[in-house]
Simulated assay, not measured.
Amino acid sequence: MDLLQIFILAALQGLTEFLPISSSAHLILAPLVLDYADQGFAFDVAVHVGSLLAVISYFRHEVISISRDFFKSLFNRYATTPESRLGWMIIVATIPVGLFGLLMKSLIEGELRSPLVIAITTIGFGIVLLVFDKIGKHSRDEYSITWRDALIIGLFQAVAIIPGTSRSGSTMSAGLMLGLTREAASRFSFLLAIPTILMSGGLVTLELISSDASADWNSLLLGTALSFITAYLCIHYFLRFIERIGMTPFVLYRLILGVAILIFFLP
Rank of each mutant, 00 (worst) to 15 (best):
T224M: 13
S51P: 03
R60K: 08
V204H: 11
G223D: 01
L9T: 14
F264A: 10
G101T: 07
F250W: 02
A10V: 10
A54K: 08
I21C: 02
T171Y: 06
P31H: 07
V55N: 04
F100T: 14
M89T: 10
A193V: 09
I245V: 11
L252I: 13
H138R: 13
F250P: 02
I66H: 03
S23Y: 12
F264Q: 04
L32P: 00
V33Q: 08
E243M: 07
L15H: 12
V117N: 15
A158V: 00
V204E: 15
N76W: 01
L239Q: 04
L239P: 00
F43D: 00
L9G: 13
F132C: 00
D149F: 03
A150V: 06
K134E: 04
A79F: 03
P267N: 08
S23K: 12
V97S: 15
E17K: 14
V97C: 12
S67Q: 02
S67L: 13
L176P: 06
N218D: 00
S23G: 09
L53Y: 09
N76T: 03
S24L: 01
S189L: 06
A25V: 12
A79V: 00
A158G: 00
R77G: 09
S214C: 09
I127L: 11
A185H: 01
F250V: 12
Y58H: 08
G40Q: 06
Y232M: 07
S84T: 04
T248C: 02
V204M: 14
W217K: 02
F59D: 03
T122F: 05
G98P: 14
Q13H: 15
D149R: 05
R68M: 04
M89R: 11
H26E: 04
G98D: 11
D141S: 08
F265G: 04
T248S: 07
K72V: 03
F156G: 01
E109T: 15
S67C: 07
G126L: 03
L99M: 05
V92D: 06
R113K: 14
S166N: 02
I6K: 02
A260W: 09
F59R: 03
T81Q: 00
F18Y: 14
L208M: 14
S114A: 15
G136E: 04
L107A: 15
L252M: 07
L53N: 11
T81F: 00
V63I: 15
A11K: 11
